[in-house]
Computed example of a mutant assay.
Amino acid sequence: MSKLARRYWASLTDTNVESVELLIEYGRQRNATLWRRYVASLLDMPVTCGAATGTKQTAGPTPAPTSTIFYDMETVVDIGTTPPNRGSWWRGAGLAFVTLLALTVAFGVSRVLPPAPGVATPATSVDAAYHTVKDPVGYVISIPRGWAREETQGKLQPVVTYTAPGGQRRLMVFEVMESSVTESSALAQSVAEGAKGYHYLDRRTGADWTEFSYRYESKQYGATKSIDHRFQAADGTPYAIIASGPPGTDMTDQLTQAVNSLCPTGAHCP
C-alpha cells in the first residue's frame, strides 16, 4: 500500500495508521464509531470485477460458494474464489469512496430539499347547527336543529312551517302555482301591503329567483320582519321560502341554508 493511500485512509478515520491491517483492527473495535467500522469492513472485503470477494483457505476440495451477512456492522463474505490481484484492492477502495460520497450527497439532499407535498383531500364542511330532513310533503331541506315542524293546508298547496324554540323565528316553505317566480312574488307583495303596519324594505332579483323584505305587525308575534324568497328548484318547480323574526334578527343564514338545500323528491340536485 502506497504512502498516499495510507494518508488518505488516515484522513478518513482521523487516526495515524501505517497499514491496512492496523486500520481494520482499529475499525473493528466495539468503541469505534459506526462509519469507521464500516470503512474497516470495506477494506477487509477485497473486490474483483465489481463484486465483493474474499479467500478462505481450506484443506481438500474448494467448498461450494456461500454468503453470510451479520447485521452488527461487520460483514463477512466467503464465496470461495481465487485470491484477487493487487489491482483489485484499488477497485475496492474506489468502491468504498464512491459509496461514502453517495451516502454523503444523499444525506445532504434530504436535509435541504423540502418534503414532498401530500395529496390534498377535499374537505367536507358540515354545519353542526343544521340537519337535513326529508319532509313528507315531497322535498329534502336543511333546517336548524331543534326547530319544530308544523303543516297546514293552504288554498292550493300544503304549507310547512319550521319554528325555532320560543316561536320568534320561523321558516315557511310551500310550492307556488303561478307560472313564474316573478309573478308569484309580485302577487305576494300586493297581499303583504294590506298587512297592519306594513313597511317595504328591499327587493333583490336573480336569474331564477326574486325576494322582497318588509316589516309588519303580526297579531300573534307582534312586530315582525319577513324575507319572502321565491325561486326555481333543481327540477324547475317554483317554491317560496319565507323567513320571519323580530326586527333586528338576522335570518339570512337560515334562509340561505334552506334555499340552497331544498331538493324536490326525485330531482337530481348538486
Rank of each mutant, 00 (worst) to 15 (best):
G245K: 15
R230S: 11
G245E: 03
V191R: 04
S179R: 13
G197K: 02
E175Y: 02
K219H: 14
G245T: 03
A223R: 12
G248K: 11
P238R: 02
T205E: 10
P238M: 02
R230E: 08
R215E: 12
S185V: 07
E183V: 12
S226P: 13
S218A: 11
F212A: 11
V176I: 12
P246H: 04
L255C: 00
Q232H: 14
H229C: 12
E183S: 10
A223Q: 06
L201E: 11
Y200M: 04
S244M: 15
A195D: 15
G197I: 00
K196E: 15
G194M: 13
K225N: 05
L201C: 13
F231Q: 07
S213V: 01
S185I: 02
F231T: 05
D208G: 10
A233K: 03
A223G: 06
E183L: 11
E217P: 01
T224C: 03
K196V: 13
Y214N: 11
T249S: 09
E211T: 13
A234I: 00
F212K: 08
T252V: 15
Y239D: 02
G236T: 09
R204H: 07
E175Q: 15
Y239L: 06
S226F: 14
A195S: 12
S185H: 04
S190V: 01
P247N: 04
G236Y: 15
D253Y: 07
D253G: 03
M177A: 04
V181K: 00
Y221L: 14
Y198A: 05
A192E: 01
G222F: 07
Y221W: 06
F212C: 10
S213N: 05
V176Y: 00
E183G: 15
R230T: 10
K219R: 11
F231C: 14
D202K: 03
G222N: 01
I241W: 00
F231E: 00
L187G: 08
A186V: 14
Q232N: 12
I241M: 07
D235N: 04
G222R: 06
A186R: 15
Y200R: 07
T237D: 09
Y200C: 09
A240K: 06
S180W: 00
S190A: 11
Y200P: 03
A223S: 13
I242R: 06
G248T: 05
A207N: 09
I241H: 03
S184L: 10
Y216G: 01
L201D: 12
T237W: 15
F212H: 02
Q232P: 07
F231W: 14
D250H: 13
A240D: 08
Q189A: 06
T210D: 09
P238C: 13
G194H: 10
S226C: 11
S190W: 07
Q232T: 12
Q220Y: 02
